[in-house]
Structures are given as C-alpha cells and as structure tokens.
Design a binder for these strands. Structure first.
Lengths: 118, 118
DNA sequence: CCGGATCCTTATTGATACTG
DNA sequence: CAGTATCAATAAGGATCCGG
C-alpha cells in the first residue's frame, strides 16, 4: 500500500474517503452514541446516562445530525408521558466494522498506557 | 454482540475504549494526517498540500498532539534551509485497520450519497 | 419524560501576517 | 521551509426556563 509519486490519485481518493467519514463522525460523541445504540434501541435518558459526560443539549444535537445522515432513526410513541426511542438504521449498521476496530484499538491503547512510563 | 441488561459492564468497557480512541483521534484532521503519512514520510508543506483545507496552525497543532501520543515522529535535519520530516511510528501503524475501515466506509458512503435522492 | 429556546462562558478553528 | 503570533469567527458546553 505504498504510494509512490506515480499514483497520487489513489492517495487522494483514500484521503478524501477518510475525510468524508470524519465529517460525519468527527464529533466527540457520535461514535460512542452509535456504539451504544448498536447493542439495542434506547431512549434519550438512557443514552445520556450511558454516554457519560454528555449533556442533553449536545446529545440532542448529535442525535439530530446522526438522524439527518440516516444513521439513526427516531421513533415517537404518543403514549401517556411520551416516549421517544432511538435505534440504529440498517445503514448505521454498516459502521459496525469501523466501530469494532476502534474499540479494539482503544482497548489495547489503554493497556499500553498502563504498562509504559507507569 | 447484543448487550442485554445482564452484562452492562461489557458495554461500558466497549464504550470507554471507543471514547479513548476518539479522545486521541477526534480532530477533524488527525486521521487524515495519519493516513497520509501511512504511505511514506513527508515534510510539513507536503502535508499541508495533501491534507487540503488545513492551515499551518492546525497542522502544527495536530502534529504535536500526534507526536505526544507517540503516533508520529518528528525528525529535524539541520541542513541549509532546515528540513523537518514526519513519519508514522510503529505504534501509529497499529491504527492501520481503523484507517482502513474508515476509508472503506467513506468510499461506499460517497457512492451511496450520489445514488440516492440525487 | 423529551427535548426546544435562550443566554453565557470557554475552547477550537481559521485567515493573515510575520520570523528564524 | 517550518512554523509562531495575533485577531476574529465559530463551535462546544453548561445553566436555566419552558412547552408538549
């Protein structure tokens, strides 16, 4: 996968693809939200509890952006107090490999941090 | 990989791992910079050209953070005009699977965007 | 319970100019 | 070339109040 001066086009395509991905997932919370929803559908307060550190404002905003991009679906049930559920879409599921690699890396990174320069 | 109420600990570990990863790679440019250096070592201006849109300030800042985290190494040669080269470290190479999945997803995402709701 | 609207404070980012 | 300094714009984040 070395890119010689001869094929800069392939490099640019690759970089552009990564930029596209980052444009959608760059927020500090988006990946975590998606990962969290990957397990099962959840409600607003559940998410706020599990994605620790996030406030309701940011959560609402991130969810909206994810919904716009078709990664997450918002479902409202007109029950008594009103119930809103979020679940990942089929398209959002395609992020699973990305999420998985990030989880793997994050895990081994933490392991590395604990073992070096203690 | 469904997480039932019974194993919330596994969920939390996973989410935490993803947060760890995002803490290090969340910047709009970091992944692109690493991907760009994945091909071969590069100089400051080369990076600024290839990571299009980034300014010198952000590039310098992102590179510093990447260096602090041990993902990128900075090498200065005291030649005539002064030469600085950046190359990815062995540890940075471990991000390759993450980068790859992101490139794959970004590519198919772009493809999808062009085909729907034209 | 689920957010939207508003206000305010800080952190990030960008554009431009400038130095060794 | 490889950055730093400076200023201005933007975004993130918190707090609070409010409506459905």
């Amino acid at each position: 996968m070395i890119c010689k001066e001869a094929q800069p086009a392939e490099c640019r395509g690759r970089l552009r693809a990564i930029q596209d991905t980052m444009d959608i997932l760059s927020g500090k919370w988006k990946m975590t939200i998606i990962a969290c929803l990957g397990f099962q559908k959840k409600r607003f307060m559940d998410l706020q509890r599990e994605v620790e550190g996030i406030g309701p404002k940011m959560l609402a905003k991130e969810l909206q952006e994810l919904e716009i991009n078709g990664l997450v679906q918002r479902t409202v049930s007109c029950t008594k107090p009103l119930t809103v559920e979020y679940h990942i879409t089929e398209y959002g599921q395609t992020l699973r490999p990305v999420i998985h690699e990030m989880a793997v890396w994050g895990k081994q990174h933490r392991h590395r941090i604990m073992h070096t320069t203690s």
